[in-house]
């Protein structure tokens, strides 16, 4: 039995201890925005926030997570109003097939929550998600623009 706090909802889920968080989110909680890409924490399509930190959920067993830890999925990000990263992604038409983009957005949102004065080099080294369509140039532009806006809003 896993006890998880997903997007602010405390859930009790009857799964085996070794079940990766990704599959609990997708199949038991029913939130399919978080994607399966590799299952070995390589590609980042499964990125969620664990207490605000971008975390690859596909190789993280639910038994390693406590009910006190806050899990945020793409469905919970900007649930009231779109997150600045989502808004910028729409403005710059970043997504192609879109499959990896939820992970990209979660990774970017986590990075910017920690530091809106991030450099090109930081973004390049911190966002290690794989995109096979090849959206990287717009991802880079998008993170920079979102960073500027978030920094401006914080004064």
């Amino acid at each position: 039995m896993a006890k998880l706090n997903v997007n602010g909802n405390l859930l009790e889920i009857d799964v085996e201890d070794d079940t990766p968080l990704l599959w609990v989110i997708r199949e038991h909680v029913g939130l399919t925005g978080t994607k399966y890409g590799c299952g070995v924490a390589q590609c980042g399509a499964c990125t969620v926030h664990l207490d605000g930190v971008a975390t690859r959920s596909c190789a993280l067993p639910v038994s390693a997570i406590t009910p006190e830890q806050k899990i945020l999925t793409i469905e919970g990000l900007g649930a009231q109003t779109p997150h600045p990263v989502q808004q910028v992604w729409a403005e710059l038409d970043v997504a192609q097939c879109g499959y990896c983009q939820v992970g990209m957005i979660m990774a970017a949102a986590s990075l910017l929550a920690q530091n809106t004065h991030t450099s090109d080099a930081d973004i390049r080294s911190e966002i290690t998600n794989i995109c096979r369509c090849g959206t990287y140039t717009r991802v880079l532009a998008g993170v920079k623009l979102a960073a500027e806006r978030m920094a401006a809003n914080r004064g």
Partner: peptide, 15 residues
Amino acid sequence: DTLDKLDGSLVYGMD
């Protein structure tokens, strides 16, 4: 066809 790619609501074959 962008917006539902950005909040996880687009249903792909796997979903």
